[in-house]
């Protein structure tokens, strides 16, 4: 019984913990498949986390908070698309500029309005148990007694996989990332596709950020994302842009994180920093083993110029 309870808590907590990164990684997978590498994801997550938190705090509506997070992410994605697709600016520089700007902007606004009061949203019951299904041992509490956004994410995974790998639209996205010239010749609007994936990735990052401050923590702190956005980029590459594989990777990552918290709670004499280190080691090791034969999309980070070979 003890063991079952432990596993149940670990699985459900780690699933919830993995959601911010998972959402961002799913968006980034589309982005990268379409030929865009967005290092601004980290900043866009911060934007979603702060704006979502602030709106939820002011209006008292968590739903509006999430909507704001998504909108801020999508607008950031749109600006990023304009800079990298229309103006064809260097994606790495623009992405880094974006992240610096967002770190500054969210930190500035938070400190300006809330100082060091560290406001939190009222702790309410956040999960929505699905009748009957949530009563199944282990699986019930893990998969069917979660936050609405967790359900949404779980539903998105197969949908996103299907769109990317089994529809013409998905084929267009992949074509735009690999051979934009051929896609263009076949009548695919390269710029339009790239705009779409960039806005989508921004919205997903914003939602992920909002889940961090609204779903997981109920508070915002400057720099709250702690590099989750970059891990999301790594996760998208590690999962070879397949939403299913990205999901598994993200969940494993969440497990290590939850383990760190769990060991703290049951007072195992180990420094939390030591455990918090492990996910990053894990990502590097995984990259060594998995990504060696993972080929990046051919036109990743390269703007498309009509008529160029």
């Amino acid at each position: 019984m003890e063991v079952e309870a432990f596993i149940t808590v670990l699985l459900s907590a780690s699933l919830r913990a993995s959601i911010p990164m998972l959402l961002a990684a799913l968006g980034e997978a589309y982005n990268e498949k379409g030929g865009i590498l967005n290092l601004g994801i980290e900043g866009m997550m911060l934007g979603g986390a702060f704006s979502g938190f602030a709106v939820a705090l002011i209006t008292g509506s968590v739903f509006l908070g999430f909507m704001t997070g998504v909108a801020v992410g999508a607008i950031s994605g749109l600006i990023f698309a304009y800079l990298s697709v229309t103006l064809k600016l260097d994606q790495i520089i623009t992405g880094i500029g974006f992240t610096i700007l967002m770190v500054g902007l969210t930190g500035f606004l938070y400190r300006y309005f809330y100082g060091r009061n560290f406001p939190t949203l009222g702790v309410s019951k956040k999960t929505l148990a699905i009748p009957f299904l949530s009563k199944i041992p282990v699986i019930g509490p893990v998969l069917f007694d979660q936050h609405v956004v967790v359900y949404l994410t779980l539903l998105l995974i197969p949908l996103l996989h299907w769109i990317l790998f089994h529809t013409t639209f998905g084929l267009n996205i992949r074509a735009v990332g690999e051979t934009p010239g051929a896609a263009d010749a076949a009548g695919v609007n390269v710029a339009q596709i790239r705009y779409l994936v960039a806005v989508f990735a921004g919205a997903m990052a914003g939602l992920g950020g909002a889940f961090l401050s609204l779903g997981n923590l109920s508070l915002f702190v400057p720099g709250e994302t702690q590099g989750i956005g970059y891990i999301a980029i790594a996760m998208a590459m590690l999962g070879k842009w397949s939403p299913y594989r990205v999901f598994i990777g993200a969940w494993l990552f969440g497990m290590v994180e939850s383990l760190a918290v769990g060991l703290q709670i049951i007072a195992v004499p180990v420094q939390p920093e030591f455990i918090l280190m492990l996910p990053y080691v894990g990502v590097i090791v995984a990259m060594v083993f998995l990504a060696r034969n993972a080929r990046l999309p051919a036109k990743l980070m390269l703007p498309y110029e009509r008529g160029e070979r």
Binding site: I96, G97, I100, V103, G104, F108
Partner: peptide, 17 residues
């Protein structure tokens, strides 16, 4: 807040490009 300078920095980089 001191983050104001970070904002300027990010903006400068984007505007430069």
């Amino acid at each position: 807040p001191v983050f104001f300078v970070t904002i300027l920095e990010g903006l400068m980089l984007i505007f430069f490009v």
